[in-house]
């Protein structure tokens, strides 16, 4: 009984936060909307028993990424008013039309055919194994996915070095 109530509450909060990100005039409000969305999505992860991922979401996103966003907003300051006319003509209406077509196709597939978005569970695994504890996540991560793990380590190093290089960039005096 808890899951449906929390699901409705948290998905409403997530969508409200997302709308705030897009609609707010002040970038700080957008960052706060993003914070709300990230926390709500973390609760949705917990509802699906992905405990470690939810914790990492709060620590990495709400802790590190959002702080970085706020820091840059404070550094740059609130920019001058955006202008809303589109440089590419009919770009927005074109994309809205395409999105409408995609949504209608998805709705048609869901309601008028017996298309299965998530195929039936692969045999032999029991649901208790998908509870996302640290141990359960670590086992596939360091066996099947170990190459991806090493690649992300390399990626993080490169990203940190690149960010430092960009931050230390000085224009040469003419």
């Amino acid at each position: 009984m808890v899951e449906p109530i929390l699901f409705v509450l948290m998905s409403m909060a997530a969508l409200a936060g997302a709308v705030t990100v897009v609609a707010a005039r002040n970038p700080v409000y957008s960052a706060m909307g993003l914070l709300g969305t990230l926390f709500s999505v973390a609760v949705l992860y917990v509802l699906q028993l992905a405990h470690l991922v939810a914790a990492v979401q709060v620590i990495v996103y709400a802790g590190a990424v959002l702080t970085l966003f706020l820091f840059v907003i404070m550094l740059i300051g609130v920019d001058k008013e955006e202008h809303w006319e589109e440089p590419l003509r009919y770009q927005r209406s074109f994309v809205a039309g395409m999105a409408g077509v995609v949504v209608l196709m998805a709705a048609g597939l869901t309601f008028f055919t017996d298309f299965d978005w998530v195929p039936a569970a692969v045999g032999g695994t029991d649901p208790s194994r998908t509870i996302g504890t640290v141990q359960a996540i670590a086992e596939p991560m360091f066996t099947d996915w170990v190459l991806a793990f090493e690649a992300t380590a390399l990626l993080l190093t490169i990203a940190a070095a690149g960010a430092i290089a960009l931050a230390h960039y000085r224009r040469r005096p003419h």
Binding site: V65, R129, P140, M141
Partner: peptide, 21 residues
């Protein structure tokens, strides 16, 4: 979760790292 496969959660883990970078 629907497929009883932990691969989804591991993939999300890597997406988080890439997003942070």
């Amino acid at each position: 979760r629907a497929l009883n496969d932990l691969g989804g959660q591991v993939a999300v883990f890597f997406i988080l790292v890439v997003a942070a970078a």
